[in-house]
Simulated assay, not measured.
Amino acid sequence: MRERWRAVGVLAAALFVVNVVARLVIKFGFPDNDTANSRVSLAMFLVIGLILAVLAFRWGTDRPVGRLAGDLAAAVGVALALTLFVGPLLVGDSPFAGGAGTFFAQIWFYLAATAAGVLVGYLGLTALGRDYRSRQLERFAELKAAKPRKVVRR
């Protein structure tokens, strides 16, 4: 159980670090350039989606869908809370400095990027037939095919 939550915590920390790096690049590299800020933010969301796609692909092979969804949702929830409330403080802003529209836009963009990443990773895994359920059904079919027929005497 400890390893499970450690992996979730490491994933949440990694997602938060990606956001902090993007915020620092924007603050020190492009403080007044809105176009560059948008591109760095887009790159951040792509990296977050890619991380989750890879982990959904990797974790989906040995975890049932319910456990996989719970682990990823917990990590994304913690990372989102850190991104919204702690991330701006690290670069000297207030979490609500951009107004309510910017605050809620961050939430929706973050959730869209994470959902897209998980969806791409898990659908790719399922399409290849390597997900937990497909492997379970394959083992069941092999087990049933390997049993000899029972002789019935009358």
Rank of each mutant, 00 (worst) to 15 (best):
A81D: 04
A74W: 09
L89Q: 10
L46T: 13
I48E: 11
I48Y: 03
D32I: 00
A73F: 09
G29C: 11
G60S: 10
L68G: 05
A73V: 06
A14E: 01
I51W: 03
F45Y: 15
L72D: 04
V86Y: 08
L15Y: 03
V54L: 12
I51G: 01
L46Q: 03
M44K: 08
L50K: 00
F57K: 08
M44W: 03
W59N: 11
L15H: 02
V17K: 00
I51V: 15
S41Q: 13
A43K: 01
L15A: 11
I48H: 03
L52F: 05
R63K: 14
N33H: 12
D32A: 05
L68S: 03
D62C: 09
V54M: 06
V17I: 15
S38C: 00
A81Y: 06
V47S: 00
A69H: 02
L15T: 01
S38D: 10
R23G: 14
L50E: 00
A73R: 01
L68T: 05
G60K: 02
I26L: 09
T61R: 14
T61H: 08
A69K: 02
A14Q: 01
I48Q: 13
A53D: 04
V47F: 00
G66R: 04
V20S: 07
N19V: 15
D32G: 06
A69I: 09
F85M: 08
V86A: 15
A73N: 04
A79N: 10
L82R: 01
T83F: 11
N37Y: 06
R67K: 13
V21D: 05
A69N: 06
I48L: 14
F28H: 14
L89P: 14
A43V: 11
S38L: 09
I51F: 12
V86S: 08
I26K: 14
A14L: 14
D34S: 14
V86E: 06
G29V: 09
T83W: 01
V40A: 11
P88R: 03
N33F: 04
F45K: 14
G77W: 07
R58H: 12
G66T: 03
L24G: 09
A53H: 07
L68K: 03
R39D: 08
P64W: 06
A79L: 08
I51D: 00
A74C: 07
V25F: 09
A56S: 15
A73C: 02
F85L: 15
V18F: 06
P64M: 11
V86H: 05
A43I: 08
R67G: 14
G29W: 04
T35D: 09
K27M: 08
G70C: 12
T35H: 02
A14R: 00
V78M: 13
V17A: 13
A43S: 09
L84E: 07
L80S: 12
A81H: 01
V40M: 11
N19R: 02
L82D: 05
P88C: 04
T83G: 15
L89I: 13
P31I: 04
G66C: 07
G77I: 05
G77R: 04
V86M: 07
L50M: 05
D62P: 01
